[in-house]
Write a protein that binds this DNA or RNA. Structure first.
Lengths: 234, 234
DNA sequence: GACGTTTTAGACAATGGCGTCTAGTTTTAC
DNA sequence: GTAAAACTAGACGCCATTGTCTAAAACGTC
């Protein structure tokens, strides 16, 4: 009789090395192979080889291929959500140096949430297997980008209340903020490449400049930008 | 032999049309199945069934699965390019009613190039099989979105030269224009759904409003009733 | 109506992956 | 040190799919 419960909590260092490490190794390898090959073309043998693990060990931990796939998606999603929360918690909340602060935020958002391996994996998987696994997609949609735009909407509203921005529709502005942040990187990320730090910086600066030209407080005149009249009658 | 011929296929015309129709039927069916299942999971039998064609006919026209796949991608790409060219040729070139004209353009662009079946197919395929078929992807990149932003950059420059827009970097503005146009639809298209006309209209209007707030001529007051000075060098 | 081309349905071997099983080895727990 | 659990390597059956082949049938042309 296998007693899988024992090691994790009870024992300290050794058990972590044994089983938990195997599990994580399998999850990482599976994420890599699933991302590169897609679900159908990914073979358990290749995952086992990448994980440096016997195939039977995989079947021991995860009953079948689909179980492994679901576990991988949930694992990546948890990491991505934690990272997203962390990045969102550093959103600027005062009007001083708003352009620089927003630029730094966009850099962090793109670098750690959107252009990184997990973001690429989730986007790719959602597009390829989304129709086949609607529940997985729904979870990702609500906890991933859904949370992002919702949270950003509130954060932008906070800045608007302080007078730093003039926004009529916070949800629209949040979506546009994200879209502008990705505008220069979209083709690169679609290709699968990873932007350099310089590219991230430049893309973020372009995005924030345009965003502030559209939504910045009229009085706050930034370098060389033309003053805007932001009054929008219903 | 048994006459289980499908009645629907009978409508096809004469000899040359017979073959050509078969080829197109195969291409359409293959595009459908490849898009839904991905290359690896798509089976020739299913494609044959969808196309109402014998499997041998497929192998007769296209030597093997990969040949068929390449032919499908090229076919869809040709259609998409033609549509993109057509839409781009209707980009507004005068400053009168710029907001409405740009909005209508964004609606057409999204409806006929980005959110339609071909656009969805290409995006999905590039993400899933892009690493496996770099040459296919490169072609799409240069002829698809690459052409879009390049052409848009020139078109925006034309508007700027006429004084309708104030743009410092046309390439950046072009990418941002596309990004803003998709901002409200991105999640929907990622899901695979098709936006309604109302959603398309609203998304385009939000995008153009923000774009013009950022890049519109300062004197030109939008969303008001009165047209401003219309003197522009024709 | 006859002939050549195209299409069709089905059979066929070959391939490869999934999931199971077994026997032998290593690791862990006590 | 010992026993139990986990891991490994490999073989195995099963099933789906690819691509080929063949005889029959449909189609278009003459």
């Amino acid at each position: 009789m296998k007693d899988r419960m024992t090691p994790a909590v009870r024992m300290t260092g050794h058990s972590q090395r044994g089983q938990c490490a195997k599990r994580m190794s399998i999850l990482d390898a599976a994420a890599d192979v699933f991302c590169r090959q897609g679900f159908a073309a990914a073979s358990i043998d290749e995952i086992a080889a990448v994980a440096c693990v016997s195939r039977q060990t995989i079947y021991n931990h995860y009953r079948e291929k689909e179980t492994l796939f679901v576990a991988v998606v949930e694992d990546v999603m948890n990491r991505a959500n934690a990272m997203l929360f962390s990045v969102l918690s550093a959103f600027p909340d005062d009007a001083d140096n708003l352009e620089d602060d927003l630029t730094a935020f966009v850099v962090r958002l793109n670098k750690n949430c959107i252009c990184n391996q997990d973001g690429k994996f989730l986007r790719k998987l959602v597009q390829t297997e989304g129709e086949r696994y609607p529940h997985l997609f729904e979870s990702w949609r609500q906890q991933g980008p859904g949370k992002l735009t919702t949270a950003l909407s509130a954060l932008l509203a906070r800045l608007a209340q302080k007078g730093a921005l003039v926004i009529d529709d916070f949800d629209v502005a949040a979506r546009q903020f994200v879209a502008l942040g990705n505008a220069d990187l979209q083709m690169l990320t679609l290709f699968g490449g990873t932007p350099t730090d310089a590219e991230l910086e430049k893309a973020a600066r372009n995005a924030v400049r345009t965003f502030l030209r559209a939504y910045g407080r009229p009085a706050a005149n930034k370098s060389g930008a033309q003053p805007q009249l932001a009054a929008v009658s219903g």
